[in-house]
Design a protein around this nucleic acid. Structure first.
Length: 471
RNA sequence: GUCGCAUUCGUCUAGUGGUUAGGACUCAGGAUUUUCAUUCCUGCAACAGGGGUUCAAUUCCCCUAUGCGAUACCA
C-alpha cells in the first residue's frame, strides 16, 4: 500500500512550493491507489500562528487536493497534529536512551552558542562537541531531576551512510559531518527529525516526498529508523522552486501564497497544472493536463533534479488557456464570482461575458474589461481616437447609422452587420473609416471586444443615444 | 569554511555515444480579424568551462566554476 503525506508547519499561509510538494504526494498516492495524509507539524510553539492551520486547509481544499486522513478525517493513526502526539514521542525517546542511542544533554544555550562561535572562528565544523555524550547513567538521572535538558541523537563517530533517493540516486554522507541532533527540546517537544520519523512510521508512510532542503538531514532520520528497529520508507527529495534570480522562491520577489494567486484570479486547475510541470513532466509535448490526467501520468522517475524558476508569464499563458478551454456555462459561473452583476443588464450579461472570454489572462481582469459595457459616461483620451471622432466622415457614418437603427424594432448582432452594409452603401465609406467611428462613439476606445457584442449589449435606444452625441 | 546536490535556448523542459539538439513560454515578424485580443505561421535563441575514455561525446568519468541546500533547542 502506497501511503504519502504532506506535512506542513502552520507558520502562516500555504506556499506555492508547499502546494507542489502536496500535489506530488497526492498524485503519487492516487496513481498507485494509495492514501494521502495531511499532518500538521506544529511542534515549534514559538512559531505558532493563529489561523494558520485553517488557512492551510482552506488553500488545499480550494485547489481540490483532498486528503484521505488528517485533521477532521481521523482514523486509528490520529491525532494528526504533532503537538498532540507527545506521549508517542516520549515513549520512543525513552527507548533510544535506554538502548544508548540517545542521551540527555544539560548544556545551556549559552554554552552552545559560545561553542558554535568558537568553532566558526577556528574554522572548524560547527557541531556539538559531545560534552554530555558520555555522562554516566547515574549522573544523567540525577541531574535530570533538577536541571533542564535536551535529548540528543548519538551519531556514530566513524563511518558513514550511503542511501538511495528516488530522485537523486545514490548519496553518501560521512557521520563525521553529522552533529548529535537534538531530538527533544527543553520545552519537552520533539524537533522535526524525531517527530517526523516517529509519525511516518506509525502512520505507515511508504514514500516520503519532500523538499530538497531535507536531503542533508536524511542520515539522522535513517539512523533513527535503524535505532528504533523500523523499516525506513522510500525517499524522494524534490528540487526547489526559485525566484527569477535563482534564489529560493521568496515573498520578497512576488507572491508565494497560494491564496494570493487564487485571489488574483488564477484558476486552481491552471495553478496545479503549472506547478506540476515545474520539476516534472511526462515526456511528451502535451502541456495542459487535468488533475485526473496528472494522476495517470505521474511517476517519481520523471522528477527533475535541478531547481526551477517560477515564471509568472507562463502561468499567465496557461491560465488564459484554461479560461478559453472552459465551457461557456462553467465560464459564466466562474466569471460571475468576479463581477458586480448589478451593474450589468440582466438579460444581456452573457453577451458581455462571452465577448471577454478570449481576452482574459486572469479572472480579475474581467472587472476592468467590463467597463466597456458598464460605463455610461466616458472621455476619449486616445489622441488618434479624438481625431477620428471629429472628422466629417465620422459624422456622416454615425448619422446614417443612427437613422438606420431607429427604423428597427430591436437591434441584434445580426442586424448590426446588415445595417453596416447599408451605411456603407449609402455613404460610400468603408473599412476602418466606417467601423472605427462606431466603436469610438459607443465605447470611447479604439480597442475592445467584438463590435457586434457591444452593439447588441447596448440595444437600440442606447446605440442611438451614444452615437447621437457625436454628430 | 565544510559537506551534499545540481548545471540543455532568457524561463519551463524533451532527448541522444554519431540528431539540422525537439517542444512550450517570452520576444520579433507575418497571416486571419473593421480594432485589440484569440487563433495560425515564421524567426531569434541552449548542451557552463577544462581535461580524459572513445573512431566518435551534449550524452560516460574526473577537475574547475557557478548556483542552491545543510551545517538551529525552525521546520
Amino acid at each position: 500500500m502506497i501511503v504519502t503525506r504532506f506535512a506542513p508547519s502552520p507558520t502562516g499561509y500555504l506556499h506555492v512550493g508547499g502546494l507542489r510538494t502536496a500535489l506530488y504526494n497526492y498524485l503519487y498516492a492516487k496513481k498507485n491507489e494509495g492514501k494521502f495524509i495531511l499532518r500538521i507539524e506544529d511542534t515549534d510553539q514559538t512559531r505558532y500562528q493563529e489561523g494558520a492551520v485553517e488557512n492551510l486547509m482552506n488553500s488545499l481544499k480550494s485547489v481540490g487536493i483532498e486528503y484521505d486522513f488528517g485533521p477532521g478525517k481521523e482514523d486509528e493513526n490520529a491525532p494528526y497534529f504533532q503537538s498532540k502526539r507527545n506521549n508517542i514521542y516520549k515513549k520512543e525517546v525513552d527507548k533510544l536512551i535506554q538502548d544508548g542511542n540517545a542521551y540527555r544533554c544539560f548544556c545551556t544555550p549559552e554554552r552552545l552558542k559560545e561553542l558554535h562561535e568558537k568553532q566558526v572562528a577556528n574554522k572548524e565544523d560547527p557541531k556539538y562537541d559531545g560534552k554530555c555524550r558520555n555522562l554516566s547513567q547515574e549522573e544523567s538521572d540525577e541531574r535530570a531531576k533538577s536541571e533542564n535538558f535536551t535529548v540528543r541523537l548519538k551519531v556514530p563517530e566513524t563511518g558513514g551512510i550511503t542511501f538511495k533517493d528516488k530522485v537523486r540516486g545514490k548519496v553518501k554522507i560521512d557521520y563525521s559531518e553529522v552533529s548529535d541532533q537534538i531530538l527533544i527540546k527543553t520545552d519537552g517537544f520533539p524537533t522535526y527529525h524525531l517527530a517526523n520519523v516517529v509519525d511516518d512510521h506509525y502512520m505507515k508512510i511508504s514514500h516520503v516526498i519532500r523538499g530538497e532542503e531535507w536531503l542533508s538531514s536524511l542520515p539522522k532520520h535513517l539512523l533513527l529508523y535503524r535505532y528504533l528497529g523500523w523499516k525506513a520508507p522510500k525517499f524522494a527529495h524534490l528540487p526547489l522552486l526559485l525566484n527569477s534570480d535563482r534564489s529560493k522562491l521568496s515573498k520578497r520577489q512576488g507572491d508565494v501564497a497560494v491564496e494570493d494567486y487564487l485571489n488574483k484570479g488564477y484558476l486552481p486547475s491552471a495553478l496545479l497544472n503549472f506547478l506540476a510541470l515545474l520539476g516534472w513532466n511526462p515526456g511528451g509535448k502535451k502541456e495542459i493536463f487535468s488533475l485526473e490526467e496528472l494522476v495517470n501520468e505521474f511517476s517519481l522517475e520523471r522528477i527533475n533534479k535541478s531547481g526551477s524558476v517560477f515564471d509568472v508569464k507562463k502561468l499567465d499563458w496557461m491560465n488564459g488557456q484554461y479560461i478559453r478551454k472552459m465551457s461557456d456555462e462553467s465560464y459564466f459561473v466562474e466569471a460571475k464570482k468576479w463581477i458586480d452583476e448589478s451593474k450589468l443588464k440582466k438579460d444581456k450579461i452573457h453577451i458581455a461575458l462571452k465577448s471577454l472570454k478570449p481576452r482574459l489572462v486572469k479572472m480579475t481582469d474581467i472587472q476592468e474589461k467590463l467597463k466597456t459595457f458598464t460605463q455610461t459616461e466616458f472621455e476619449i483620451n486616445d489622441e488618434e481616437a479624438k481625431k477620428i471622432i471629429g472628422t466629417d466622415s465620422t459624422k456622416i457614418v454615425l448619422k446614417s447609422y443612427s437613422e438606420k437603427v431607429s427604423d428597427l424594432d430591436e437591434l441584434t448582432a445580426n442586424d448590426f452587420y446588415s445595417i453596416m452594409k447599408k451605411v456603407q452603401n449609402d455613404t460610400g465609406i468603408k473599412g476602418k473609416d466606417l467601423w472605427m467611428p462606431i466603436r469610438i462613439a459607443l465605447t470611447g476606445e479604439m480597442h475592445g471586444p467584438e463590435l457586434d457584442c457591444i452593439v447588441e449589449y447596448f440595444g437600440k435606444e442606447e446605440n442611438i443615444s451614444r452615437v447621437g452625441k457625436f454628430f
